[in-house]
């Protein structure tokens, strides 16, 4: 498990907490019958003993608990250790199972689940307490940072989007809109529009009225003087084809 805390620098720091992620094989348990689990585990290991030897393993219990029966985590952990595996964590267990794991110094993680097997198993109040105990969930992957703007972009303003940029109004002459992704303008483009500013040659510019001062995709630009009169004041899309800007009516 990870944490973001950093230790303040007293003279020279001897250690540091870092947040990092690495992959660990997960053992998903489908049956609460320990005998059956152990038998099948041995069978699997025998097929590739070197592969499993001393391997860290995360135990996933979310599918094995039924209303009548639940697996004993302590016994399961011992069983894995006997088979030369190193359990490093328990995921999806209930209160009792987590407590057993903690006793054996194995960290736990609770998964929020709607599966009836678990939610019907315990009253809601109990589940809440588990959540509080739970170690922080893994960070979600950063979402693409698109930007939506519904007011006019005035002369002298600069807008930058890390993803796509969508403008529901016009872009005035003397304004500059930039995006690492695509640019969509549902209004007149009279200023400058630069798409794919970090070099994404696949990005495009779309606008419903092209009167731009300058358009650019991944650094390939054209100024208004070079723009074809045929597309002037037309709804257009602009894209890159073999290093050439293509301006096409929509």
């Amino acid at each position: 498990m990870s944490t973001d805390a950093t230790i303040p620098n007293f003279e020279k720091s001897a250690l540091e907490f870092k947040s990092t992620s690495f992959s660990v094989p997960v053992l998903v348990i489908f049956s609460a019958e320990l005998k059956q689990v152990e038998l099948q585990l041995k069978e699997k290991i025998s097929k590739a003993p070197d592969f499993f030897k001393n391997s860290p393993i995360l135990i996933d219990l979310q599918f094995c608990n039924t209303s009548e029966n639940e697996i004993d985590t302590a016994q399961l952990i011992h069983c894995l250790q006997d088979n030369a595996l190193f359990p490093v964590g328990v995921s999806g267990g209930n209160d009792k199972q987590n407590a057993q794991a903690i006793d054996l110094h194995i960290p736990t993680r609770t998964i929020r689940t709607t599966s009836s097997a678990i939610s019907t198993h315990k009253p809601a109040v109990e589940e809440k307490s588990i959540e509080e105990e739970a170690t922080p969930a893994e960070p979600t992957p950063p979402s693409v940072e698109n930007k939506l703007i519904s007011h006019p972009i005035r002369s002298g303003q600069r807008i930058y989007a890390k993803g796509d940029l969508i403008i529901l109004s016009h872009v005035s002459a003397g304004a500059e809109v930039m995006a690492e992704g695509n640019i969509h303008i549902y209004g007149a483009l009279r200023g400058r529009a630069l798409a794919g500013v970090q070099g994404n040659t696949e990005s495009r510019i779309f606008c419903s009225d092209l009167q731009a001062e300058l358009v650019s995709i991944a650094g390939n630009y054209q100024v208004s003087e070079d723009l074809d009169k045929a597309e002037h004041c037309q709804p257009t899309q602009i894209y890159l084809q073999e290093q050439t800007l293509i301006i096409k009516k929509l």
Binding site: H151, P152, I153, R154, S155, G156, Q157, S172, A173, G174, A175
Partner: peptide, 13 residues
């Protein structure tokens, strides 16, 4: 008109 547009941008920000 251009200068007014610029001023509007400043008003907004």
């Amino acid at each position: 008109v251009r200068d007014s547009d610029r001023m509007l941008g400043i008003l907004a920000s």
